[in-house]
């Protein structure tokens, strides 16, 4: 340790400077926190925190591969009821005979019956389903890969052949809605599912069709798909409006 001799005045001056710097720091830190915390909100979250989310999204765009498949797991016993965590958009009765999924892609507009959807090539996967709350559950699910759906139905591409950057989904009553980046939707384990844990979807788990996208939190895995649409603009997203991160990528 360096030792040296100083006068008491110099020492006190040095101490005084440091203490003042300390108070300036405390004021600055507290001021910054309070300004952010009680400042203007953007979709229920302080603006600065929204900016951080955009930054994180850019970092993810640079470093992450949105099509990376989630790690495979061992399937839960057949018939295990999947956890039910929310019923927004599921209050109306469902009639399988008259149910239609509306699809909008540019000028294309059509409706699909349950049978038409289930005739698409079936795929199956077992993955960890992760809720933004922090719980997880291994689920088996079966349905059509979203990218197969796009290819076969000829949707998702603009007139010039480039993909729309955003996909929107909503329940038939439009009370729950999500929007996602098309890149994540092209992952092999992103599926329009009609089966979970070896059984047909229950109403509270999204009968007849729900989205399963294991690279996103559960909030993006919309239940009871009423409409699928493609967009150049980012469509509104239920939980994003309520303060959550739009990207929510895992």
């Amino acid at each position: 340790m360096k030792k040296h001799l100083v006068s008491r005045e110099d020492l006190q001056r040095r101490l005084f400077r440091s203490v003042v710097a300390g108070f300036v720091f405390i004021t600055f830190a507290l001021g910054t926190f309070l300004t952010i915390r009680y400042g203007p909100l953007d979709r229920k979250l302080p603006v600065a925190l929204r900016k951080a989310q955009s930054f994180n999204e850019k970092v993810a765009a640079e470093l992450a591969n949105p099509e990376r498949p989630a790690p495979c797991k061992e399937a839960p016993p057949k018939g295990t009821p999947p956890r039910v965590n929310g019923l927004i958009g599921l209050r109306d009765d469902v009639d399988g005979d008259t149910y239609r999924v509306i699809v909008d892609s540019g000028a294309k507009h059509f409706e699909m019956t349950i049978d038409e959807m289930m005739k698409l090539p079936r795929t199956e996967a077992v993955n960890d389903f992760k809720c933004v709350e922090g719980w997880t559950a291994v689920i088996q699910y079966a349905g059509v890969k979203f990218k197969d759906f796009m290819k076969i139905k000829g949707v998702g591409l603009r007139e010039d052949g480039t993909p729309y950057p955003y996909v929107g989904l909503e329940t038939p009553d439009k009370k729950y809605y999500v929007s996602l980046d098309s890149k994540s939707m092209m992952s092999d384990d992103t599926v329009i599912a009609w089966e979970m844990n070896g059984a047909e979807l229950e109403v509270e788990n999204g009968y007849p069709f729900r989205l399963i996208i294991p690279s996103k939190y559960g909030i993006k895995n919309l239940k009871r798909i009423g409409r699928i649409f493609f967009s150049d603009e980012r469509p509104p997203d239920y939980w994003n409006k309520r303060g959550y991160d739009w990207f929510s990528g895992l």
Binding site: M1, K2, K3, H4, L5, V6, S7, R8, E9
Partner: peptide
């Protein structure tokens, strides 16, 4: 400057 005038010198170590 004041160091010369000050009768009292204190030995210190740079700790952090």
């Amino acid at each position: 400057m004041s160091a010369e005038r000050s009768p009292e010198k204190i030995e210190i170590v740079e700790k952090y």
